[in-house]
Amino acid sequence: MGYPVIFQIERVYYPALAAIGVTVNLVAIVILNRGNCGLSRCITRYLVAMSAADLLLVIINVILNRINNLYFPVSFLFITPVCALRVVLSLAALDCSVWFTVAFTFDRFVAICCQKLKPRYCTERTAAVVIVTVSVVSCFRSIPWYFVFVPSIIVNNIPWFCTQTPDYFTSSLWIVYEWIDSFLTPLFPFVLILVFNALTIRNILTANRIRRGLRGYSNAETHIDPEMENRRKSIVLLFALSANFILLWITYVVHSLNWRVINYNYTDKNLSNPIYVAQQFGFMLRLLSSCTNTCIYALTQTKFREELKNGAKYPFTLIVKLFK
């Protein structure tokens, strides 16, 4: 009897995702840190943090969790304390990735809509403080999950595998904690991103209309306004990153909400069950968001594309110089 289709897809999908995700996030971190992309140091801080969180997410969640579970069903990573630690680190990296996106969205909202607050908030120092704060809070918020798991079996006094403690399904404390955790990641971020983007769009449309009026433009005229052009380029990056996050997370969010309402204690892991398949596709899309940001940078930022091309040409240029 062959493997179910979803299992076969996962065995190909996750190794490919790991190879691409590690490569593109490392490339993004190197290029952004060079500071030649024409972005402010504040924006660069957030983008580097997002790429670093995505890189950790690929390493921990995709490689150490998904690929390890698919290809190495028995390894030291399945010793219960290590297994529980993997879950905690995976959730912390996921939390950072999500909230760095929210922090970046809020920073751009302040820069565009709150001119009085902008000089104080949209600085490299503030970005560093926000990034460190989000990282610390995400780590501490993930620690309780370590205590959810107990060993499935004990062999030679060594606890193996992770299974949820019975109290997890019956304790009101754990039930409330999981609902709060689900609200904080990603339901609340979803709402924040949508609200900040809606307010930003409204502000931009109003400002553009006023600016055209002051400059004597009619809607039919096609004059190039440098200020409006710069504003357009900055918001394209913001909206592309936000839309990417929302589109790739929506399947997971809808499934998660739907199943918590219908059947909180869902434990059917039948690989052919439609609900389980939908859940796994939600996981796949959610993790795909960890390696799409670099593609967005390349599509929306001209100088990032130039740096990428220069980096790709460098090994060949070096070889030519060596043989001259």
Rank of each mutant, 00 (worst) to 15 (best):
P81E: 09
A312T: 05
Q279K: 12
C83R: 05
A198Y: 15
R202H: 15
I60R: 01
I153K: 10
N263P: 02
I43K: 15
V30N: 03
E307V: 03
V155W: 00
W249Q: 09
D167R: 05
F109K: 00
N310H: 11
A298G: 08
A53S: 15
V22W: 04
T101V: 03
W259Q: 12
F161W: 10
F7M: 05
L237F: 12
L184T: 13
I6D: 10
V24M: 09
N61P: 06
F239A: 01
W179M: 09
V102I: 05
Y314Q: 11
I175S: 11
S290T: 09
F104S: 08
R286D: 04
L199A: 06
L205H: 12
Y3G: 01
F169P: 05
Y146G: 04
F245C: 03
I154F: 05
V87H: 11
L237H: 10
L26H: 02
S97H: 14
Y264H: 06
S172Y: 10
C139D: 04
V253F: 13
I158M: 06
G2N: 15
C122I: 03
D167H: 04
F183M: 12
L117C: 08
V5K: 10
I153C: 05
K233L: 14
A298C: 06
M50D: 00
A298F: 13
L299W: 14
Y146C: 02
V155R: 06
E227D: 14
L91T: 01
V195Y: 09
N33M: 07
L194I: 13
I210K: 12
L91C: 00
I59G: 04
L322W: 14
L26S: 01
T302Q: 12
R260I: 06
I131D: 07
K324C: 12
R232G: 05
I180N: 07
C139E: 02
V30Y: 12
V102T: 11
I60G: 03
A93E: 03
V5C: 07
I246Y: 05
F323N: 03
T126Y: 07
A220G: 13
N157F: 08
S256E: 15
F190S: 01
E306H: 07
R212H: 15
I153Y: 09
V110P: 00
L32C: 01
T23Q: 08
P166F: 08
C83A: 08
L64Q: 08
C96G: 00
V191A: 15
L247F: 14
Y46E: 01
F72D: 02
P81D: 09
W174H: 07
S135V: 04
V12R: 06
V277S: 03
I175F: 10
N69A: 11
F149D: 08
A198P: 02
L257V: 11
R202C: 15
G213Y: 10
C114N: 10
T302V: 08
T267R: 10
V148T: 08
A84M: 00
V134C: 08
C122L: 00
F104G: 07
G38W: 07
S171N: 11
L173F: 15
T123S: 11
I20W: 15
L287K: 06
